[in-house]
């Protein structure tokens, strides 16, 4: 007789620590929401510390689960990218179409709005103080480096990320993931990898499109406001402000956003067996965590830009 074996499917996250489970199951209320008046200061402090500890452990557990899931996905991508290419590559193309082409109308609308709000206003303001020579630099900093990638990622998260959690959560709840395993098909390879690659390439392409639309659309709005800035001057300022590092970092950043959104949403859809009624809650959690992860990554890229 060997040691007890815990059964686990290929996509299950690491099990939680015993202490985590104990703390999680402890009857802890959120401080500030306890209405009973006889709670002593000591008990209150203990509850508060318990609550903080619980939140920290939950955060650590989430990061650990996401990290493990991301590494497994990375491993599968590295070892199986060419495996069953006749099945997987059409799925990747379908995801690119879904996270790219099908979002063009909404991205066009947002790009024009962004052009109006940011570029139209900024260029108009700069012309009033006679500083239109900085227009290109400001546009590159605001649109190319910051707003373009982040807004595109948020649009994809809202439109595609939520759908991924729901479809994978439902597939897991209905036992389709186990059916894949029974047929010798790796669920990470079949379900996750196409979404990671598709969303990474989709967000990259959409960001390039959004930036171009924003820069052109914004100038048109500025032109309509009779701003004394010739198109040649404007675009030469942009060209001067752009460096080759901007293109590299834009590609890295957008692909990373896509991979993060795909990994987080797939993780919440697949990582544990869901009941149908839990899918909505998993979707909310996935959106919040994707948002936080993308913002943190964006902040890290700001440091890189500052070092440049």
């Amino acid at each position: 007789m060997g040691p007890p074996l815990k059964c686990r499917t290929a996509v299950d996250p690491p099990t939680g620590a015993t202490y985590f489970a104990a703390v999680r199951n402890a009857p802890v209320s959120t401080p500030g929401f306890d209405s009973s008046s006889d709670v002593t200061q000591d008990r209150w402090a203990r509850r508060y510390l318990n609550w903080i500890g619980w939140r920290i452990l939950r955060l650590i557990n989430t990061i650990r689960g996401l990290g493990a899931f991301g590494l497994i996905t990375l491993g599968v991508m590295a070892t199986k990218f060419k495996t069953a290419s006749h099945v997987i590559h059409p799925l990747i193309r379908a995801q690119i179409h879904r996270a790219g082409v099908r979002l063009l109308p909404i991205v066009s609308f947002v790009a024009l709005a962004l052009g109006l709000v940011v570029i139209g206003q900024t260029v108009a303001l700069l012309s009033r103080v006679g500083a239109t020579t900085y227009a290109g630099t400001i546009m590159v900093t605001v649109v190319v480096r910051e707003l373009g990638p982040l807004i595109t990622a948020l649009l994809v998260l809202a439109r595609i990320g939520t759908a991924i959690v729901i479809e994978l959560g439902t597939a897991r709840a209905l036992g389709e993931v186990e059916a894949l395993e029974a047929l010798g098909i790796d669920p990470i390879h079949y379900l996750v990898m196409p979404r990671v690659v598709g969303l990474a390439l989709g967000i990259f392409s959409l960001t390039v499109y959004l930036i171009l639309m924003t820069l052109v659309g914004g100038y048109l709005f500025a032109f309509l406001q009779d701003v004394p800035l010739m198109p040649g001057d404007y675009f030469s300022q942009l060209a001067t402000a752009l460096r080759w590092e901007d293109f590299v970092l834009l590609a890295l950043k957008t692909c990373a956003f896509g991979a993060i959104i795909a990994v987080v949403t797939c993780y919440h859809g697949l990582a544990r067996p869901l009941r149908i009624q839990e899918v909505a809650e998993a979707t909310t959690r996935a959106v919040v965590e994707s948002l936080v992860a993308c913002t943190v990554l964006d902040a890290l890229f700001i440091i890189v830009y500052l070092l440049m």
Partner: peptide, 21 residues
């Protein structure tokens, strides 16, 4: 536990296509 987004023929074809590439 069938794959509901696929047709019946596609349900059967999937494992064959996957393993035979």
């Amino acid at each position: 536990r069938l794959f509901n987004q696929l047709s019946i023929a596609e349900n059967l074809a999937l494992p064959l296509c996957y393993h035979r590439n």
